[in-house]
Design a protein around this nucleic acid. Structure first.
Lengths: 303, 303
DNA sequence: ATTTTATATGAATTACATTCATATAAAATA
DNA sequence: TATTTTATATGAATGTAATTCATATAAAAT
């Protein structure tokens, strides 16, 4: 009396209908006729209605039975579809790729990469989570995201950092700016300047982490802007100076509105890494994304 | 390895999600936590994908798990709905009422009855099968129909005939017809007449079964018409004579276009019966239909 | 009426879900 | 950080329910 309707029963109903009888259905399901007979008897007890008309010999579905069959024909394909979705998932054709980017400027090269990726892996669920830019690595461990783009590799259990490419952080100012005569920019130079940055914690900005904080220099003023194009606009109109990755700057290097200088005599070189859960590197789409990211980086550097 | 996804699994997934953890879900389902743990392990083996993220402590659904949950939330209510449909069926609120009528003129009184019935039993699936007018009783036994309206009760195993009402078969002709002077009509009178009948086997027509066949009389001519109103039209314009149940004739009894006479000196009295499978008499809607038919009959006779 | 074919059923068997006892691992707490 | 608490996992034992086997019964076909 505790028994429930189970998929077994739906498969049975469908088989009996398709095969046109219990005995034939039994072959179809690789099961004995007796088993099916017991099964439908149990099902009729459970549902409380007669599912079959037993007066005719290959037994037929009653009205109630037909109703159940209808449901079976609706539900069973859905389960099969789900199973094949799962098969895709296991085969690595589908999956989830939720990305957190610590580096704000990375949008620039990430979008073209994702566009290529999307074409090759249409069933992978792509998303970018800019919200949790900080705390990205814990989120990665907790499987809230699957990929973190970061400049600061850490030793973390279960997390692997894959080197994507190197870039330089370069100083950008208006062409009219007095620093256009300098060969390179020092930390101390910022003390009198208005610095334009992305609106993120300063520890996540190369200018600060690599130059100003170590040298204990505070810019005269800080102004924040969301989009790279806005920052460049502000710089062009001499409202301040900024520091950006060289790949961003490559587009405006030959633009006479701007002057671009290295930071320090040696330049400030940084690496960009893809952080993933180690086991995820087995997934083909994940490896492919990292490959694509490397290729795109190469293309940017050439310009 | 042969295991399939079962409803148990869907209920489990849903419970784990709703309760927010395996342990709490276990209470919810009145089952041990261990059972659920084994269950989801088996399910993961079957599907081949990880359904849960086990890094966090009350375990969460993975992407695949969420997909399964979505399906569970779709499917489980459908099964519940079906079960309550079955409950209605068992309670006698719903069911099938497919009717075969041997007696062609019965449409006349059956339609109003069914209209009343439909209002009271909206979930009963009503249908009239005029096609298998002959062979109606075997169809009843085979559960192809559930009710047969017949004038000829037989002793048949599993079939019960319920008397609905009696009627007389009466002769109808145009008012101008010479027989309008007769007190009653004999079989021999038909030998010179054109008889208009429903287009059915003559054994199912009262004139033949009750009068002409026993007396071995053949009408001069036979003409067939589908609808009672057409038959009456033909009779009014003196294209022939007919024999109809008195309840049909009651409408035109006072119409000066027609003359109505009894058959034979004594009249030809017949009964009308509802044949059903005996077990179907337990169903409340079936009893109610038979009651309604009786009432409607009473109303017709009064006119 | 008889044979054939299809379904039903009781008892035995087997498979498998569940429980129990306990290990393991994450989260909370000190 | 160590410790306690809470949550899940697991192996072995148990119990239940699905399946099989052997056979009875009933409808269809001959």
């Amino acid at each position: 009396m505790k028994m429930h309707i189970e998929f077994r029963h739906l498969r049975t109903i469908r088989a009996i209908h398709d095969a046109g009888g219990v005995a034939r259905a039994a072959d179809l399901l690789n099961i004995t006729q007796s088993a099916l007979s017991h099964q439908i008897k149990g099902l009729e007890e459970q549902t409380g209605v007669e599912l079959f008309i037993r007066k005719s010999k290959p037994i037929r579905l009653s009205v109630a039975g037909q109703r159940l069959l209808k449901l079976a024909n609706k539900i069973l394909p859905e389960i099969d579809a789900l199973q094949s979705e799962f098969d895709d998932l296991r085969a690595g054709k589908s999956g989830r790729l939720h990305i957190a980017i610590e580096c704000h400027a990375c949008f620039e090269w990430l979008f073209p990469v994702l566009e290529k990726f999307r074409q090759k892996w249409p069933d992978v669920d792509i998303d970018i989570k800019p919200g949790l830019a900080f705390e990205a690595l814990p989120a990665l461990q907790k499987e809230n995201v699957d990929l973190v783009i970061s400049s600061d590799p850490e030793k973390l259990s279960g997390i692997t950092f894959t080197h994507l490419f190197d870039y330089k952080s370069v100083f950008v100012a208006s062409a009219k700016h007095p620093f256009s005569k300098k060969k390179w920019i020092e930390a101390s130079d910022f003390a009198t300047e208005t610095l334009i940055t992305y609106p993120v914690d300063r520890t996540r900005l190369d200018v600060f982490s690599q130059l100003l904080i170590p040298n204990k220099i505070e810019p005269a003023q800080i102004r924040q802007a969301d989009l790279t194009s806005i920052i460049l606009l502000l710089v062009a109109s001499d409202r301040g100076v900024t520091v950006l990755p060289d790949w961003v700057v490559s587009e405006i290097k030959n633009n006479s509105d701007y002057t671009v200088k290295p930071l320090k005599k040696t330049g400030v070189q940084r690496g960009l890494f893809a952080a993933t859960r180690t086991e995820c590197l087995d997934k083909p789409f994940m490896r492919n994304l990292i490959d694509l990211a490397g290729q795109e980086a190469g293309r940017l550097q050439k310009d």
